[in-house]
Amino acid sequence: MDAIATEGLTKHYGLPRWWRGGSARFAPIRALDDLTIAVHAGEIFGFLGPNGSGKSTAIRLFLGFIHPTAGRAHVLGQDVSTAGAALRGRIGYLPGGIALYDSLTGTQLLDYLGAFYARPPLLRDSLVERLDLSGRDLGRPIRDYSRGMRQKIGIVQALQHDPELAILDEPSEGLDPLMQRAFYAILDERKAAGRTVFFSSHVLSEVERVCDRVAIIRDGRLVALESVGALLARRRRHVEARLDAPAPALAAALAALPGVSAFEARDDRLAFGLDGDVAPLLRLLEGAPLADLTIEPARLEDAFLELYDEPAP
């Protein structure tokens, strides 16, 4: 069973056509258009896109905060438009830029929000310890918390009841590098326990680090949906080779290699981009007078920017 499955999920805001009478000025805002994705149970799924691309709209549709204009969404096997509160009892949610009850202490907040669930907050102590929230921190009113502390409390409230599906919107925002590392370890543990994590982020390095698959949306439309590995494998690597001596024949052979682009040869230094499989390159370099070879791995950031450079779908 997929943890999340959508089919043509669409959300437009604005006045209905009969009301605006064809005026372009009041044309609807297409927040999400025809989104069809499947998030497999037990995976960490990254949902990427810049501000205003429709990430939060999709998340809000999954949680039933807003209603689709068209299409359907099933979460944990239930139709979100009819499932209601019971479904949300199986989900943990961290909103982006979370707002909390400032007058409560950390402990009071976690007790309050946790009390709505049938499941006890089994993971609270472990999460609090991993995220370095001391008893003193939890005893202070939330109004005194820094942004990072608020985010940590937000993560604990989302995961403390061991939800089957965690929906996290920009979860590492405000966390320092140490806490980010602790958070990634928590995500790995969620996955190892068979739980699903759906997570939106701007931080492409963290998505690359923790996610199994990613969906990239642009202007409300899905532009890519595949595993991080597959996405990277199809992207350009930057290759730089330094030779013991100039080798014009090798340079010519490299320039003619399929997938090579932006080839530059300067004295004993060769630099080029490489798309696709790396094996033919390595075969060609076998026995060459190499002093040094650097193959920079493809980065999700490049893939992301490349998809955003393409003309709009």
Binding site: L63, R88, G89, P95, A99, L100, Y101, F116, Y117
Partner: peptide
């Protein structure tokens, strides 16, 4: 307006 309704309605609360 404060944004806390979202946190509340993410619970199993109709």
């Amino acid at each position: 307006q404060r944004g806390t309704l979202e946190v509340l309605l993410a619970r199993p609360l109709e």
